[in-house]
Design a protein around this nucleic acid. Structure first.
Lengths: 240, 240
DNA sequence: ATATATCGACTTGTATACAAGACGGTATTG
DNA sequence: CAATACCGTCTTGTATACAAGTCGATATAT
């Protein structure tokens, strides 16, 4: 079988391996609903699509499997893990636990980290200065990730990053409504206020409510979006 | 190259793949200090030792890499990640955060889960009924894992299990002293008491102190044990 | 003697060949 | 016609071949 669209780098690899790029490509396809939850596909299909051989494809797939995005059926192909809202809600709750712990540490610090002011510059702004582009989801993710990273425990930050990445696929859907974006700005602002004043319990309560609200909103939207995606793309799995 | 000691199953694989067994074997070797932190080794060596080819070996190694046990140097071999006590302490702190969150949920439940009584049967026993075998570390791990699992959030339980597994290599060292085993029994007992009486804050405080104590004890012991291991095994990496 | 250039053994990354089981369609048998 | 056995196709798991780069030892030049 000849390589289809060999997006291999010339010379050699420039920092990232072929397996890593296949990994990123596949995850992007899942996030873009180009591969729908429940879809079946084979390693050979992915190899042909990406222009790589099965070896790096398998490495990428097994990594995605460990991370919960796909699963393998013994000698019967791969499948995008179907949505399980219970799992997503549990992951939201993990976020609440980790981020509240981060808040406790942040408030206990002798001096507030400079990162806090940087966040205030972004989020504590009047209505006309607010951004509404589709990259809002990334900014929101960056906000919460920054809180945990600044708390000082890098292992906790790594775990939190993985959890955030995992629910990013549905969290994005929360930023398609203008009212939800407004609410995000408002809530981030008051959280940062409470943090600046070292009101630990208050900040934790605001943060918990903020995440829980997002969790509940997303559940409603996801079903709708999934339905739309199923209509746009035909039912054929990876061959768009 | 012919297979050395092919511990491959006859017929076919009975549930677990070759890659998984190589993974388990390597992790065991690391836990047994047969592969010491800092040791260098190659895929070919592991393949010869385990009787598998490089393919499943690579899969096992990359999984261990994702989990933080080994790292790969581009075309220069693999290395057991050297001990980093800062990382271990951070992981201990993650355990405190997760297990305290579990306690909060357990105390908030309308009725205590039956697992609580099972744990009391094990840990709330008089001195002569206590076990002192080397499997204590596993029992201790099971205690803490059970708390988080019983709290209901399975994703949190999975993360907690990974963290516990990661620090298990040094946590075992805490159970080589009889006084530490005694303390573990005592502390588990009072934690279970507080849980049964739904004293949330008290149980959290006891649990935090219990984990923090273990964290501090282990740091002291680890250096000693590492020194001993280095003396027993020669300096040659995997070829014992 | 010392510094440098070159070469070769060894490493991982990737591609391909082979093995063994799953699954569905088809032919066969009642 | 219905049920069943069989066989070919397709799948992943594993082994091996090839590619490209690293690193140290050795020889050479200054």
């Amino acid at each position: 079988m000849t390589r289809a669209s060999p997006f291999r780098q010339r010379g050699s690899m420039r920092g990232q391996s072929l397996a890593e790029r296949v990994y990123a490509t596949l995850k992007q396809m899942i996030f873009d609903f180009e591969l729908l939850p429940g879809d079946y596909f084979s390693e050979a299909e992915v190899a042909e699509r990406t222009g790589a051989s099965r070896t790096p494809v398998r490495e990428a797939l097994h990594r995605l499997r460990r991370e919960g995005y796909v699963e393998v059926h013994f000698r019967s192909g791969w499948q995008v893990v179907p949505f399980d809202f219970d799992v997503f809600e549990q992951l939201y709750d993990v976020r609440i636990v980790l981020e509240c712990a981060a808040v406790e540490r942040l408030c206990a610090m002798s001096e507030p980290p400079p990162m806090l002011q940087a966040l205030r510059d972004i989020w504590c702004v009047p209505g006309q200065a607010r951004s509404f582009d589709p990259a809002m989801a990334e900014q929101d993710k960056a906000f919460h990730t920054a809180l945990v990273t600044a708390s000082g425990n890098q292992e906790m930050a790594r775990i939190h990053r993985d959890v955030s990445e995992r629910i990013h696929i549905i969290r994005r859907l929360d930023f398609t409504q203008a009212t939800r974006i407004e609410a995000t700005y408002d809530e981030h602002a008051v959280i940062l206020e409470a943090l600046a004043r070292r009101r630990t319990a208050h900040a934790q309560q605001l943060l918990s409510a903020h995440i829980a609200l997002s969790r509940n909103e997303v559940r409603k939207i996801t079903l709708h979006m999934l339905h739309e995606a199923r209509s746009r793309h035909a039912q054929g799995p990876p061959e768009a």
